[in-house]
Design a protein around this nucleic acid. Structure first.
Length: 765
DNA sequence: GAGCACTGC
């Protein structure tokens, strides 16, 4: 395969496009959609046909309006929602809005909206659903007359903010007035707001304090097919709220594939489908399975460059290292092709979440021009992770190379470990990837697997997040949301009973749930924090250990991405810098040292430079600062004291280590007698300390923040603790009467005996 | 001796 000459047009023979009935090809479906030319009831009539100027929407009857009425009101001259004169820009945008596919079905939408409390809306990309449907709702639901709001949820912050801005422009209002958004750390909405875009997690938070979501007259769940944890929980809640609140309207918006599943779930709610506006994408498969998907991907990219007409390439790989490696290799090979075969210039861009935003933006740079006038056209290649599948859309992509893999979170309830695994993608994902080739013009998608594999081996949909996660946090949230009977809570995909049991058990040990499974006072408090239960419990307990200021900082640091930067080109220097902050008792204390140094005068004088010099991520620290502020406000509201032990006190660090145990007593490992490996307590998993640790090998007992499953089982971010603290701080979990027999129990028993002897001596004196 | 896809509160 490696000796294949680039100019050989093999692809047309080996990777044959599908030739079976094209109308059955789901990827070409949009070519065959019924040409809808009906402008029902003359609704699409031209502008200015003698309709009088209308102010406001005073003669609109709620849930009995027509598309025509809304159309007239939109034509101005004044803004129907605030009576201000409409701008020229407004009318320009209005014209383009009326060209969107959803516009044709406005009346159809309203008819269904009137008849049904819950409505499922399916719209492919380019249909305009995210921007238009909420506006259609506004003109009929008239939330401002009842003092309520229409909410539209998004899985991601960027989507919530950018769509809100766009819709504010479309409605000719200032962002934050009639149209606003609400995301973590930022609420741009006010008393005038009638349409609020928000993250699904944010609406879930609101539901915790208002179980009926009474502020809202209509809730639109967008991108429901993504099945985020928050969306799944919201769907379950909304199903219940709908019964308690007949006045609440619910619209669930999704991509086509699983529409019927949503319909069924919502008691056979009516469904409205709107075609998208994309170009056909031709799909090619490999005739034989590929052994090495990275190698095959590189080969395919280079072959496209050599043989296919102008157009940019998007290649999907699984992770940062793989991507950087592939970028290097493609660049090298392309340079050779340019030298030896007069190929056009090729620019390669990596794209993954960890990339600084500035570098992420570079993918939008135009493809390079020909090296000389009249030469072969240039091309850009983007090598990206799944971010390119959902979060980011890049126009101009004509070729997609899809090896069929992505890293996915998996949860093993038996050993209570979440990990990332390179796994085959789903059919839905493959379709989404292919669709990226048809945004600006007809494109091609090269799948590096056989057609038979696609049909038989790929699952239909990626498993929803709720089936792949530790549910401790979810269960706590549900309890706080007033869902007492978890087993009968109607989720679209109920998680495995074992996963639920594990979560309940974990929360019971953390004393967030009592033995009846009811929320305790501690549990209620913990649910107020946007944190995992163990972190929340550690934070809430920290005043008892005289170090809540420090644990507050540490909790924030543990909730953001890795603060230590270690570029491949300067590993040694980075390690030397990290050593400056190292605390002999562990990584938690080391992180705290970094934070304190960062907040010191020298670093604050020029934080960017200081971080760069010390191989610290400024972004991570700034975001930790943000999180810290938010957590601090919640602590103050909950009347939790902010205290510190004097830095010169010998117990300063000891107190912090003891507080760690209060939340992480279930994440403790003990060194094996062999002295090399560790065993997790209770689960008896063999683990190694992650090589990034500052901890020496002489620590008998450690708490760890996370499990990392790669080639070996590692525990990362570890700090030394003493066994007597475990017995003292978490007596229920470390109850030796019920503790599994083994080395760990024997060691704990010895510790207990020692404590008893000491006490006896004291008492005997 | 180094393995964090992505999102969210």
């Amino acid at each position: 395969m490696a000796d294949r000459r680039p100019e050989e047009p093999e692809m047309s023979r080996a990777k044959r496009p599908r030739t079976d009935d094209p109308s059955q090809n789901p990827y070409l479906a949009h070519m065959y959609e019924a040409q809808d030319t009906s402008d029902y009831n003359g609704y699409n009539r031209s502008n200015g046909s003698g309709t009088k100027a209308r102010t406001g929407l005073s003669d609109f009857k709620r849930h009995a309006t027509t598309a025509l009425q809304a159309h007239d009101a939109e034509d101005g001259p004044n803004n129907p929602f605030n009576n201000a004169p409409l701008s020229k820009q407004y009318f320009n945008i209005l014209k383009t809005r009326r060209d969107l596919p959803v516009h044709k079905q406005r009346q159809e939408f309203l008819d269904m909206f009137h008849k049904s409390q819950i409505l499922v809306f399916v719209g492919e990309t380019g249909s305009g659903k995210t921007t238009q449907i909420p506006q259609f709702v506004l003109f009929d639901d008239l939330p401002h007359f009842s003092g309520k709001l229409v909410a539209c949820t998004q899985p991601r912050r960027v989507a919530a903010t950018s769509v809100a801005q766009r819709v504010a422009n479309e409605m000719d209002v200032k962002l934050g007035d009639e149209v606003g958004y609400s995301i973590r750390f930022e609420d741009v909405s006010g008393p005038k707001t009638i349409l609020k875009y928000m993250t699904d997690g944010m609406l879930l938070r609101e539901a915790m304090h208002d179980h009926n979501l009474t502020r809202y007259s209509c809730i639109i769940l967008d991108e429901a097919h993504e099945r985020t944890l928050a969306t799944d929980l919201l769907m379950g809640l909304l199903k219940e709220i709908a019964l308690r609140r007949p006045d609440l309207k619910i619209v669930v918006m999704s991509a086509t594939l699983d529409a019927q599943k949503f319909q069924r779930y919502f008691n056979d709610a009516p469904l409205l489908a709107v075609p998208g506006r994309t170009h056909p994408v031709e799909i090619f498969y490999t005739p034989e399975p590929e052994r090495d998907y990275v190698e095959a991907a590189l080969r395919t990219v280079l072959q496209i460059h050599a043989t296919e007409p102008e157009g940019d390439i998007l290649l999907f790989l699984t992770g940062e290292e793989e991507i950087e490696d592939a970028c290097r290799k493609i660049t090298l090979e392309a340079d050779e092709m340019i030298r030896e075969a007069d190929a056009g210039p090729l620019k390669v861009y990596p794209l993954y979440g960890n990339l600084p935003p500035q570098q992420q933006q570079r993918i939008f740079e135009p493809a390079p021009p020909p090296t000389r006038p009249g030469g072969r056209p240039g091309r850009k290649v983007i090598v990206g992770t799944n971010v390119a599948e959902t979060s980011l859309t890049i126009d101009g992509i004509v070729y997609v190379v899809d090896p069929g893999f992505s890293k996915q979170k998996v949860y093993n309830p038996r050993i209570r470990v979440e990990s990332l695994l390179v796994s085959p993608i789903s059919k839905a994902s493959a379709q989404q990837r292919a669709g990226r080739a048809g945004r600006t013009r007809p494109g091609k998608c090269f799948r590096l697997y056989t057609e038979a594999a696609f049909k038989k081996e790929l699952i239909e949909q990626t498993y929803p997040e709720i089936l792949r996660s530790n549910l401790a946090n979810t269960v706590l949230e549900l309890k706080k949301l007033g869902v007492d009977d978890l087993v009968h809570f109607d989720l679209m995909d109920p998680p495995a009973p074992e996963t639920l049991m594990r979560a309940l058990e974990e929360l019971n040990y953390l004393a967030c749930l009592d033995d009846d499974g009811d929320l305790t006072a501690l549990g209620k408090l913990a649910s107020e924090f946007p944190l995992d239960p163990s972190l929340a419990v550690m934070l809430i307990s920290s005043p008892e250990f005289y170090c809540s200021n420090e644990i507050l900082s540490l909790t924030a640091l543990l909730s953001v991405p890795q603060i230590f930067v270690r570029p491949a080109s300067a590993r040694k220097r980075a390690d030397e810098m990290k050593a400056l902050f190292a605390h002999p008792d562990g990584d938690h204390l080391t992180m705290l040292n970094v934070y304190h140094a960062f907040k010191g005068a020298e670093a604050q004088a020029d934080p960017k430079r200081w971080c760069h010099e010390h191989f610290i991520s400024l972004r991570a620290l700034q975001s930790a600062d943000n999180v810290r502020q938010q957590l601090k406000r919640i602590m103050e509201k909950s009347e939790l004291d902010l205290v510190s032990t004097d830095f010169n006190d010998k117990d300063y660090y000891t107190n912090i280590r003891r507080a760690l145990v209060a939340g992480f007593f279930m994440q403790v490992a003990k060194k094996d007698p062999s002295g090399k490996t560790y065993k997790t307590v209770k689960d008896d998993q063999s683990v190694l300390l992650h090589p990034s640790t500052v901890l020496g090998v002489d620590s008998e007992w450690v708490v760890y923040n996370e499990f990392v499953l790669t080639t070996k089982n590692y525990v990362r971010t570890v700090t030394a603790v003493r066994p007597e603290w475990l017995l003292d701080i978490a007596p229920t979990y470390y109850d030796l009467a019920t503790f599994p027999k083994g080395e760990v129990r024997t060691a704990l028993q010895r510790t207990l005996d020692k404590i008893k002897r000491k006490q006896a001596m004291k008492g005997g004196r």
